[in-house]
Amino acid sequence: MQARAFRRPAAALLAVAFAVLPATGAQAADSARTSGTGGSGSTTSHPSDPLVWGKLLYEEGCASCHGLQGQGIAPSPAIKDSGAAAVDFEVSTGRMPLGTIANQALRRAHSLYTAEETQAMAQYVATLGNGPAIPTQQVQGWENADMALGGQVFRTNCAQCHSFSGQGGALTWGKQAPNLMKATPTQIYEAMLVGPNNMPKFSDQTLPPAEKRAVIKYIEFLRQPDNPGGLDLGRLGPVSEGLFGWFGGFGILVAIAIWIGVKAK
């Protein structure tokens, strides 16, 4: 009994330590990022001029691959004419700075930069050449866009790669068209405008802003479609359903056939 009494406070202390540790760790990481000792590497009190700040961030985080003038250092592409829209898309989705070596830059769960840092970098890159601005104005009002038109435009121009349900799909040599379910309206608009990676560009002249907003409206609908319930199996259609049918359904049929064939005792 006595030994138990001694152990208890120690156990409690341990439990508290384990509970607090991750929290303080996260806090430390958070403060490191915002204070600039972390990956983004800005100074503790950043310059008030966003262009100066953006230049600093660019030189620290981007220039080693894309060059000081955005001219690109092979095999990294030139980005001087990519514009603020491309920077906002690539950085806010966490695709840049490049993470693991893969066939293409992949989306991160969280961007490595804060929204303000991203804005500053985007503004700075916009000064390097001619590229589209962040389409903040054009995205406005997508909630009231024509969803039926959006569906038609999506199925004609987007579905071939991103699939009818926006779940993404395979391209050549291990590349892929990403799932659209996590993209924000601005990111969707930016992707159509700048054509990140292997995605073709859909200019505002051939696919006017009203149609782009309609596409956004349709993608937003795809996230919360009318749902009859049940196992959606990723909504991939015949592939996952077939797999389920073959392994699940046939397994049951084989088990029943064996039961029928076994001699009764």
């Binding site: 038109l149 435009v153 004609t156 121009n157 054509g195 560009k201 200019s203 002249q205 051939t206 696919l207």
Partner: peptide, 21 residues
Amino acid sequence: VTDVTYLPIKAADVPVGGLVN
């Protein structure tokens, strides 16, 4: 013309890297 909306396409409006169905 563009599919779905049947708008004529100006050559200048197709950017390098662009695609029009």
